[in-house]
Design a binder for these strands. Structure first.
Length: 277
DNA sequence: CTCCTATCCTGCGAGC
DNA sequence: TGCTCGCAGGATAGGA
């Protein structure tokens, strides 16, 4: 479930629960039920953070960044990761891998990381991992620096399909497989168009479409998974608002022709032949 | 450089 | 109903 909008919603949920507090939020303990996610969790390094004070929760690309007075750590949800507040002692499910114990205004609470496929990342953030994990990332799509001019410039040498290009984290972060298709539909651009062939006008339209699509999804995500206790609730906007993603063979909501699907660079791509040129 | 494929892992729905 | 197959929202290494 996690593309940028979902990660942003999770971040806001964490903020609401943990950051907007009058008193201090302390991390009392990390509990690793298993440490082999996509990479092995450096359990030892996390010992240093026990007893630290949580200062800030941020998002960079699809990473959550937790800042404490004793160091930083990151969480990436991969394909199937999610965080929830542990509701009771017995609240444990298969594929719960990490538990963080907090002391919030003197009251203890725990947050649980759940991830069936274990493509997620949980890592201590020092100079080395910072460079490794975050060093190569392109601009945030929702910031002003992500402009049509920037996109056009950075795609001038690219022979790959435009859809593949905007999913490249070096070009722009946070655009995953769903919103790539959705944004291209919004912009009226065929996904298979060679990236270097887009015009400046098209680049501008595409940038606007990416921003709009992501913002809309954040809003919808916020309303459907605001408590984010379970991942099941996320189906709300998922199906309801998509114009093309997952709608192969169905009618285009704009022109009525059949939505196409094809595989590009190993990922399913959805588009409308008539609306996208 | 850039591009494409395979790969990590489990769950689920389609189709038989 | 029960089984198998293919596919799933990410990201990277490695070969071409």
């Amino acid at each position: 479930m996690p593309e940028l909008p979902e990660v942003e919603v999770v971040k806001r949920g964490f903020e609401k629960a943990l950051a907007d507090r009058s008193g201090a939020v302390l991390i009392t303990r990390f509990e690793f039920l298993r440490k082999d996610l996509r990479d092995v969790i450096p359990v030892k390094k996390f010992e240093k953070l026990q007893g630290s004070q949580l200062l800030k929760i941020a998002r960079r690309a699809k990473y959550l960044i937790f800042t404490t007075n004793l160091g930083e750590f990151i969480s990436h949800l991969g394909m199937t990761g999610s965080w929830r507040r542990q509701s009771s002692i017995g609240d444990q499910r298969p594929h719960d891998h990490i538990r963080i114990h907090f002391l919030v205004d003197g009251i203890s609470e725990s947050w649980v990381y759940h991830d069936p496929r274990r493509f997620g990342i949980f890592d201590f953030l020092d100079g080395k991992t910072q460079a490794q994990r975050l060093g190569h990332l392109g601009p945030e799509p929702l910031l002003e620096q992500f402009t049509g001019e920037y996109l056009w410039q950075s795609l001038r040498q690219r022979s790959s399909a435009i859809k593949t290009a905007i999913m490249d984290q070096k070009v722009v972060v946070g655009v995953g497989n769903i919103y790539a298709s959705e944004a291209l539909f919004q912009a009226g651009i065929r996904p298979s168009l060679r990236a270097q062939k887009i015009t400046q006008i098209q680049a501008q339209k595409l940038v606007a479409a990416i921003k709009k699509t992501l913002l809309q999804a954040i809003e919808a995500g916020g309303s459907t998974i605001s408590d984010f206790k379970s991942t099941e609730n996320q189906s709300g906007y998922f199906q309801a608002q998509h114009q093309v993603y997952g709608r192969a063979g169905e009618e285009c909501r704009v022109c009525g022709s059949r939505i196409k699907v094809a595989v590009t660079a190993g990922r399913s791509t959805f588009w409308c032949l008539r609306c996208q040129r």
